[in-house]
Design a protein around this nucleic acid. Structure first.
Length: 108
DNA sequence: GCCATGGCTAGTA
DNA sequence: GCCATGGCTAGTA
């Protein structure tokens, strides 16, 4: 009982590769679209094990409140990468978070 | 038991 | 600030 299918890391990475440059999504949004609404923290753990940060842009995944969130190479690096894509921050919070948030359901 | 989160409550200013 | 959540790892027996 209470046996549900487990989150697959490859499913998470498959979504993250599709986030366009200059756009972001959240740990929670990825969790929801995969049918695991409570698994946002698990998403972060999976991203932390990203085997290929070059092709999988996990720096584009941030917290649901617009805060930068974590990054395996430090949030400073994560912010730099996002700034290079034209995004802006005040301290660790994104400017116009709503405006640069991508709709995962529409990605292809 | 840790942790790259999130949603909710209490209760300060 | 608290705590539920879910996947993972270290490391005890």
């Amino acid at each position: 009982m209470h046996v549900h299918k487990q989150l697959k890391a490859s499913d998470v990475f498959d979504i993250v590769v599709k986030i366009p440059e200059g756009k972001v999504t959240t740990y929670g949004d990825i969790a929801k679209i995969l049918g695991h609404p409570g698994a946002s923290r698990a998403i972060g753990r999976i991203l932390n094990s990203n085997p290929n940060p070059i092709v999988v842009p996990c720096h584009r995944v941030v917290m649901s409140n617009g805060n930068i969130g974590g990054y395996a190479f430090g949030k400073t690096r994560k912010k730099e990468l996002l700034k290079k894509e034209g995004l802006h921050f005040m301290r660790d919070d994104m400017h116009d978070f709503a405006g640069c948030r991508t709709n995962l359901a529409k990605l292809r």
